[in-house]
Computed example of a mutant assay.
Amino acid sequence: MRTEVVSEPALADRPTEDFAAVGLPAHGQGGCLVVLDGVTPPRTETGCVHSVPWFTARLGGALTELTVSGRDMTLSGILARALRRTADAHAGTCDLSHSRTPQATVVLARWSPQTVEYLVLSDSALLVEGADGTVTAVLDDRLARLPRASLATDALIDATVRNKEGGFFTAAADPSVADRAVSGTLPRAGIRSLTALTDGAARWVEKFGEGDWTDCVGLVRKEGARSLVHRVRALEEADREERAYLRRSKTHDDATVVFAEL
């Protein structure tokens, strides 16, 4: 088995809000990957005394431990329990009902000799490469399908579409959001590799159009996960002034890639 984990902050002098991990249980019969993309808060009040990196570290650590050890639990059940555990860690000091309480996107995958299970919540991506080289993108595209008018300001997003019916969902403090994730199970025999990307790394496809998802997996397989991140950074710098591709997006974003060749 080959695994790679690369995570680079948007700015060298600021901590990343992403979390990434690969778990390989001692029994040697499978493994898991976990990727979180922390949601950068606005400058206004969030109701929480903790940072987004604090939240993603807590939630990511719980997800990694539970995904490896809780073989009898579903991935949605694991996400719900990890959210509850993380919420309990700061419920006494923070207003967890605040719309901007720390939150993150989630990609989980777990494999055994028989199956590959997956879960995706919000706009990170999981790319599943079949034995024949076909790549299927597992996406939660609810945010992408929203009218642009509903995303005009942070206040409008928080009031109308963030973690609301008809909008989009992220992992924050409510364990029931786990049931909103895109999830499923596939036969292990038909899968060659898994690649998880935060949207900062997925920009290579989604914003800059340098290739499709199959090209993206091929690049990571041939040149490595770090090469994908470096290519994204070069594209961001080239578009810094004209913003033909980035438009209103921030110039750099935290970028994380996890690759697992099964």
Score class of each variant (00 low, 15 high):
Thr3Gln: 11
Leu11Gln: 12
Asp13Asn: 13
Arg14Asn: 01
Pro15Gly: 03
Thr16Glu: 02
Leu24His: 00
Leu24Trp: 00
Pro25Asn: 01
Ala26Val: 12
Gly31Pro: 06
Cys32His: 02
Leu33Val: 06
Cys48Asn: 11
Ser51Trp: 03
Ser51Ala: 04
Val52Phe: 01
Pro53Ser: 10
Phe55Asp: 00
Thr56Ser: 08
Ala57Met: 02
Ala57Phe: 00
Arg58Met: 09
Gly60Trp: 01
Leu63Ser: 08
Thr64Gly: 04
Leu66Arg: 15
Val68Thr: 12
Ser69Gly: 03
Gly70Leu: 01
Arg71Phe: 07
Ala80Leu: 06
Ala80His: 02
Ala82Tyr: 05
Ala82Glu: 02
Leu83Thr: 10
Leu83Cys: 03
Arg84Thr: 15
Arg85Glu: 15
Arg85Pro: 00
Thr86Pro: 02
Ala87Arg: 15
Ala89Asp: 15
Ser97Arg: 14
Arg100Glu: 15
Thr105Asn: 04
Val107Asn: 10
Leu108Trp: 01
Arg110Lys: 07
Trp111Phe: 09
Pro113Leu: 09
Gln114Ile: 00
Val116Leu: 13
Glu117Val: 04
Leu119Gln: 02
Val120Arg: 04
Ser122Glu: 14
Ser122Phe: 02
Ser124Pro: 04
Ala125Gln: 13
Leu127Ser: 10
Gly130Ala: 15
Ala131Leu: 11
Ala137Arg: 15
Leu139Val: 15
Leu139Ala: 11
Asp141Met: 07
Arg142Tyr: 05
Arg142Met: 08
Leu143Ile: 12
Arg145Asp: 10
Leu146His: 06
Asp154Glu: 12
Asn163Pro: 09
Lys164Val: 12
Lys164Trp: 07
Lys164Pro: 01
Gly166Ala: 14
Gly166Gln: 13
Gly166Asn: 12
Gly167Cys: 07
Phe168Asp: 07
Ala172Phe: 02
Ala173Pro: 05
Pro175Lys: 08
Pro175Met: 10
Ala178Val: 03
Ala178His: 05
Thr185Lys: 12
Pro187Glu: 07
Ile191Thr: 06
Thr195Met: 08
Thr195Glu: 06
Leu197Ala: 13
Leu197Asn: 03
Asp199Glu: 08
Gly200Met: 07
Ala201His: 07
Arg203Met: 08
Val205Ile: 04
Glu206Lys: 12
Glu206Gly: 00
Gly209Cys: 08
Glu210His: 09
Glu210Val: 00
Asp212Lys: 06
Asp212Glu: 06
Val217Ile: 14
Gly218Lys: 06
Arg221Asp: 10
Arg226Lys: 14
Ser227Trp: 00
Ser227Asn: 06
Leu228His: 03
Val229Arg: 06
Glu236Trp: 11
Glu242Lys: 11
Leu246Glu: 01
Arg247Gln: 10
Val257Asp: 09
Ala260Ser: 12
Glu261Asn: 12
Glu261Cys: 14
Leu262Met: 06
